[in-house]
Design a binder for these strands. Structure first.
Length: 256
DNA sequence: ATGGTTGCTTAGCAA
C-alpha cells in the first residue's frame, strides 16, 4: 500500500499537476494540504475519474485539507471536534482498509515571538490532545501532512541559516516530539539515517536551485503499521518544471 | 536587516 502526503499550495493552481501525478504515481492513499479552496471547488469528479474517493475539508483562501483513497473512506471527521473555536480547516481524518488516517496542515508560525508562532504552539498541543483522544497506538494509523517542523538539523540543508526560524525552533521541535511520543514513528527517518533529503524549498531566493531545503512534510505511523513500512521517499522531481508547488510529495509504502 | 516568489484576491496577507 503506497501512501503519500503533499502540500499542493492551491488545488486549483495545481490541478493539472495533481491529476498527472496521481495517474503516474498510483498511490492508494493521498493526504493533501493547503487546498486554498472551498469544498465545492475541489476537483472531486476528476479524481473520481482516476479511481479515488475524496473527503475534503476546504476553506476559502487559506488552509484546506483532503484525503484521497482508492478503497472506501469511512468515519470521516473534519476538524478537532473538541467544541473549541475551529475556524481554520487544518485537520481531517477517516478510516480506510482498517487504517486510521489523519491528514494535518500544521500552522507555519510566521516569525518566532509573533502571535502566529504562539498560535502554532497552542495548535500543536491541541493536536496532541486530539490524537491522545482518537489515536490508538496499538492499531494501524498514519498521521500525514505538512508539519511545518524540521525534526532535527539533519533535516535542514543549512541549519545555521534556519536555526532561528519557526520551522526549526526548539519549542516547535519539542511540541512535535510530544506528538511522536503518543506512539508515532517518522517512516522516512526509520528508512534513511542520512541528511540531504528535503520536502520544501522556498520559492524565494532560488531555494530549490540552491537546494536550500527542509524536511517538514511527514508520514508518521503507529508501530504496527511502521513495522510494515518497506520504503519511504520524497518525490523531488515533482518540485521541478513549470508551476510546481513549493512542497514535494512524500511517500511511504507498506506491505499488504 | 531585509529581500526574494507564488497564490488568492484585487493591495495586502500568508507562506
Amino acid at each position: 500500500m503506497k501512501v503519500a502526503s503533499w502540500n499542493v499550495n492551491s488545488v486549483r493552481a495545481r490541478e493539472a499537476r495533481l491529476l498527472a501525478w496521481l495517474a503516474r504515481t498510483q498511490p492508494e492513499l493521498v493526504c493533501l494540504q493547503e487546498l486554498k479552496a472551498e469544498n465545492d471547488v475541489f476537483p472531486s469528479a476528476a479524481v473520481e475519474a482516476l479511481g479515488y474517493q475524496a473527503a475534503v475539508h476546504g476553506q476559502r483562501t487559506y488552509n484546506g485539507v483532503a484525503i484521497l483513497s482508492r478503497a472506501p473512506l469511512t468515519e470521516i471527521e473534519r476538524g478537532f471536534g473538541d467544541g473549541e473555536d475551529d475556524a481554520q480547516a487544518r485537520v481531517i481524518r477517516a478510516r480506510v482498509a482498517g487504517i486510521r488516517v489523519f491528514c494535518a496542515y500544521f500552522p507555519n508560525g510566521g516569525e518566532v515571538g509573533s502571535e502566529k508562532f504562539a498560535y502554532k504552539l497552542r495548535w500543536m498541543e491541541r493536536m496532541r490532545r486530539y490524537l491522545e483522544r482518537t489515536l490508538e497506538k496499538s492499531e494501524s494509523a498514519v498521521l500525514c501532512g505538512d508539519f511545518n517542523v524540521a525534526p532535527e538539523d539533519r533535516d535542514v540543508a543549512r541549519p545555521e541559516e534556519w536555526k532561528d526560524s519557526v520551522l526549526c525552533h526548539p519549542e516547535a521541535r519539542a511540541a512535535l516530539a510530544r506528538i511522536a511520543d503518543l506512539g508515532l514513528v517518522d517512516t522516512f527517518r526509520r528508512q534513511h539515517s542520512e541528511g540531504g533529503h528535503y520536502s520544501w524549498w522556498d520559492y524565494r531566493m532560488l531555494g530549490f536551485p540552491k537546494n536550500n531545503g527542509l524536511r517538514i512534510d511527514h508520514i508518521f505511523a503507529t508501530e504496527p503499521l511502521a513495522a510494515r513500512c518497506q520504503s519511504a521517499e520524497i518525490d523531488r522531481n515533482e518540485r521541478k518544471g513549470k508551476q510546481p508547488s513549493d512542497h514535494a510529495p512524500v511517500l511511504a509504502t507498506f506491505s499488504q
